[in-house]
């Protein structure tokens, strides 16, 4: 039955492409989560009226974030080719997509982290300071736990964006479902392959959204 609707789909190839997409997406989500939180914390803490208030640092981080957030992803990949060659050693394959994915997504996520941190009641930070907490204690025990639902719903949105970025990266040779849909589906005119790749991507996106929503509502005790 399935064979009838998708006569040209090589299931082994499709499964391999799915694994490549999942690999690229999961590594980049983890890295984006870490770098995004670091950048977001820097943006928040150095902003006006906060613990590390520092105009120059805030300006630099903010500009970096804005620049990389504004460059269209497909252009970013091309721009980063020399950088990727140095870091990864090649520009073909799943690993080659990672630097562009992370550099493209981390600033995007950093802004969401910053928004999440801004939503924390200032009084709670003041209370922690009044108890004699160090800044590191405030970061680990107040800022991150108190903004966790926002951090998780932010990374959910970012992860979904990253799945579509991997498809774009696939077009220029990074492998994955995007690569398969482009080479086998589009260039050979096999629409069923493109359709199947799309369905799998949709399923991945729905699963990510479901997991994200579940964790967010579990975490949120407000």
């Amino acid at each position: 039955m399935i064979e009838e609707f998708f006569p040209n789909v090589n299931w082994e190839r499709m499964w391999e492409a799915t694994r490549e997409t999942l690999y690229m997406a999961s590594i980049s989500v983890v890295a984006t989560f870490i770098f995004g939180i670091i950048l977001g914390l820097l943006l928040f803490l150095t902003s006006k009226g906060n613990i590390w208030e520092n105009k120059p640092v805030n300006f630099i981080v903010s500009s970096f974030v804005n620049i990389f957030r504004s460059i269209p992803f497909i252009i970013l990949i091309v721009l980063l080719i020399p950088f990727t060659k140095i870091v990864i050693g090649t520009m073909i394959g799943e690993n080659a997509a990672l630097p562009a994915l992370i550099i493209g997504a981390a600033p995007f996520y950093a802004r969401m982290v910053e928004i999440g941190l801004r939503e924390i009641d200032k009084g709670v930070i003041e209370a922690s300071r009044s108890m004699g907490a160090k800044t590191t204690t405030i970061i680990w025990k107040v800022l991150i736990p108190e903004s966790m639902p926002a951090l998780v719903s932010g990374i959910t949105v970012t992860a979904i964006a990253l799945v579509s970025y991997t498809a774009m990266a696939g077009v220029i040779g990074a492998g994955g479902l995007g690569n398969l849909a482009f080479l086998e589906g589009f260039q050979r005119g096999r629409n069923d392959v493109t359709l199947m790749a799309t369905i799998i991507i949709l399923v991945i996106v729905f699963i990510i959204q479901y997991i994200g929503d579940t964790i967010t509502s579990k975490l949120d005790k407000r």
Partner: peptide, 22 residues
């Protein structure tokens, strides 16, 4: 030294300022 001192001078607030995650 200031952090040490603050452990001896505690404070309560109008809006309680509890951590909702705890």
């Amino acid at each position: 030294e200031l952090r040490q001192a603050r452990q001896e001078i505690s404070m309560i607030f109008q809006h309680f300022n509890l951590l909702w995650s705890r």
